[in-house]
Design a binder for these strands. Structure first.
Length: 272
DNA sequence: CCTTAATCCTGGAAGC
DNA sequence: TGCTTCCAGGATTAAG
């Protein structure tokens, strides 16, 4: 379930433990989780961690000799292990640091993965260039223009990482509820004012969720192993059949873009 | 070019 | 209690 706030929280918490550290050894437990060159060198062995970057839901662990793009998918995690701390189940890659600690990539469902690049520039040019802007960066007119190109439901469009990067199923439902927009509203029928409201809501909700350390429904923990706290702020996700907190109607479940969707039939506006 | 649907995978929950 | 079935979902791929 890692969406932008969870991935950003991982970026920050992992960074606290690994920035400036030398990677003394990399162990590949499962090779097919790595796309591109799956050598320990390409994964950062014998190099120093310089920065961890994020675009949308993806991270880049950048050393002075390697650049590893990490996508957590649905169940992936990047965690620091102190001392002899036991690695989580389904740990696929282990990085050992010069301070004796380790950090690991684990992913039970293997929807995530690692992609190796020569540099952050190459990653940005070859991979991240296909993603839309992050919600904090996108302008209302940019979003309006992106939405104008598709007849898909607004929810499907917002989940498309090529238009705007970082939203997943949980936050997109929350954003649409906040904006009083129905998930099935046709994207290209929305007006600039709708895009303005969407941008404002995305920024607010994602910023609040980052401040709360992300949302933990079941498995998610940050780089230090801590759970998030934003789940208690959800207005619609996971509340099917319960009262709308705004108007009291019963929240309904549907499937939009193949995803379970919760919305209020009364106060979320259907457009065409 | 566009869209939607199937697919990958495991573990937890629900059903029998 | 223990087995089976279903479901969760991000992104890619195939199909319509």
């Amino acid at each position: 379930m890692p969406e932008l706030p969870e991935v950003e929280t991982v970026r920050r918490t992992l960074g606290e433990a690994v920035l400036g550290r030398l990677v003394s050894r990399v162990t590949i437990h499962r090779k097919d989780i790595v796309r591109g060159s799956a050598t320990t060198k390409a994964l950062g062995s014998s190099s120093t961690v310089q920065t961890i970057e994020r675009h949308g839901k993806q991270l880049a662990i950048v050393t002075d000799a390697a650049c590893v793009c990490v996508h957590l998918g649905m169940s992936g995690s990047l965690r620091v292990l102190k001392g002899n701390q036991k690695p989580p189940i389904h740990t696929h890659i282990t990085w050992r640091l010069d301070d004796g600690n380790r950090f690991v990539f684990a992913d039970p469902r293997r929807f995530g993965g690692l992609w190796t690049f020569n540099s952050l520039t190459t990653l940005r040019n070859d991979r991240w260039s296909r993603l839309g802007p992050d919600p904090p960066e996108i302008t209302p007119s940019q979003l309006h223009r992106a939405l104008s190109t598709t007849t898909r439901p607004i929810k499907a469009a917002l989940l498309d990482q090529h238009l705007v990067a970082g939203l997943g199923n949980i936050y997109v439902d929350e954003v649409l509820f906040q904006c009083r927009l129905h998930p099935l509203a046709v994207a290209c029928d929305l007006e600039l004012a709708d895009a303005q409201r969407l941008v404002r809501a995305m920024r607010k909700i994602l910023a609040d969720a980052i401040a709360a350390g992300g949302t933990t429904l079941r498995d998610y923990v940050d780089g230090a192993g801590r759970t998030g706290g934003w789940q208690k702020n959800r207005q619609v996700h996971g509340r099917s059949g319960q009262d709308c907190l705004r108007c009291g109607s019963i929240l309904e479940t549907s499937s939009v873009g193949g995803r379970t969707t919760i919305s209020c039939p009364t106060c979320q506006r259907q457009v065409v």
